[in-house]
Amino acid sequence: FSSEKLLAIKSLLSSEKYNLVKNYLKSLENDIHHISLEKINTISQKNVEWTQFGYLSYLSNYASNLVQFSEPKIIDIEFTQNNFKRLFEKYIFTYAQDAEYSTSQMIVEQVKENLYPKINTRVNLDITLDSSNFENLFAPIEVNFLGINGMPVAGQTIDFSKKHYFLENDVTRFVALTKVIELAENKRGQFYILGREPENSDVKNHQLWEQIRDSDILEFVDADETGIVEEYMESHDVRPYFKK
């Protein structure tokens, strides 16, 4: 599915309906992706359904909720990435990087591609901070963006699918940085973590993601919804923390 197209209709739906559609499409994307990763004899019955013409035909006739299905068609062409992109653009939307299943690097690149050009003049991008910048910062740390609008604004892209130890380390380092910045400015800041919700089956990572999502000191932003950060930057007239 196209996250850009989904975001475009956000204002037409209630928050509850929008989240329902978004979560359903992401769940479907994950199910289909797992089919390509698993050996055929280990694919679950749930995932097998998505490979069956009859099941999709059934959904086209009887699924009448927010997400509906058209009658499936058989296309007799070679399956290649180029053909996939052509079909995606013909029937769905302009093909973007986020149309593919995201790996850690792809999430980072997606944020850089979609967000950086829009906030470039308002923040310092991909800078490494150390004790020469903040005296209470004892080890160098890189942050994706840093600005100020009377209070500090910073953000970091984090991959919630990595091993829990490394994920916990990334989050802890960023939280420590936010405290150092707040101490230097003597005021609360606006701090973002950008990424994707991990699988429910990844229990520890999902619990950490939930804690961040519900946190009062951090704001989680889905990598598909970086417009939230852009809007904040514009409405609060954020400027680079360090002069360029």
Score class of each variant (00 low, 15 high):
residue 151 M to Y: 13
residue 229 V to N: 00
residue 62 Y to P: 02
residue 213 R to F: 11
residue 53 F to Q: 11
residue 5 K to I: 05
residue 61 N to G: 10
residue 91 Y to D: 05
residue 90 K to W: 05
residue 59 L to P: 14
residue 86 R to K: 15
residue 71 E to V: 13
residue 82 N to S: 14
residue 185 E to Y: 08
residue 47 N to L: 08
residue 190 Q to C: 05
residue 167 L to Q: 07
residue 95 Y to M: 04
residue 115 L to N: 02
residue 10 K to W: 09
residue 36 S to P: 02
residue 156 Q to V: 09
residue 213 R to K: 13
residue 178 T to L: 00
residue 51 T to W: 09
residue 98 D to A: 08
residue 26 K to H: 04
residue 22 K to L: 07
residue 169 N to C: 08
residue 38 E to N: 14
residue 185 E to P: 11
residue 160 F to L: 05
residue 197 E to I: 04
residue 21 V to H: 07
residue 40 I to A: 12
residue 204 K to N: 14
residue 134 F to D: 01
residue 237 D to P: 03
residue 118 K to Q: 14
residue 185 E to W: 09
residue 76 D to W: 10
residue 108 V to S: 12
residue 99 A to R: 09
residue 31 D to L: 15
residue 215 S to G: 12
residue 7 L to H: 13
residue 21 V to T: 03
residue 181 I to H: 02
residue 78 E to T: 10
residue 130 D to I: 05
residue 58 Y to Q: 13
residue 20 L to A: 08
residue 29 E to D: 06
residue 47 N to Q: 14
residue 86 R to V: 12
residue 236 H to A: 01
residue 29 E to Y: 11
residue 65 N to I: 00
residue 124 N to A: 08
residue 112 K to H: 13
residue 117 P to S: 06
residue 170 D to N: 15
residue 11 S to C: 11
residue 19 N to K: 14
residue 156 Q to E: 09
residue 36 S to M: 10
residue 111 V to G: 13
residue 202 D to Q: 09
residue 166 F to G: 00
residue 118 K to N: 13
residue 74 I to S: 14
residue 232 Y to W: 04
residue 169 N to W: 06
residue 184 A to E: 03
residue 53 F to I: 12
residue 143 V to C: 04
residue 32 I to S: 06
residue 45 Q to G: 12
residue 104 S to I: 03
residue 137 L to R: 07
residue 65 N to M: 01
residue 100 E to Q: 07
residue 172 T to C: 14
residue 109 E to L: 11
residue 218 L to T: 03
residue 27 S to F: 15
residue 173 R to W: 01
residue 213 R to L: 13
residue 87 L to E: 15
residue 131 S to T: 09
residue 93 F to I: 02
residue 207 Q to W: 04
residue 221 V to H: 03
residue 53 F to D: 15
residue 108 V to K: 13
residue 77 I to V: 15
residue 192 Y to V: 01
residue 174 F to I: 00
residue 128 T to S: 10
residue 244 K to W: 04
residue 139 A to F: 11
residue 201 S to Y: 06
residue 66 L to C: 01
residue 86 R to G: 02
residue 75 I to K: 12
residue 222 D to W: 01
residue 224 D to R: 11
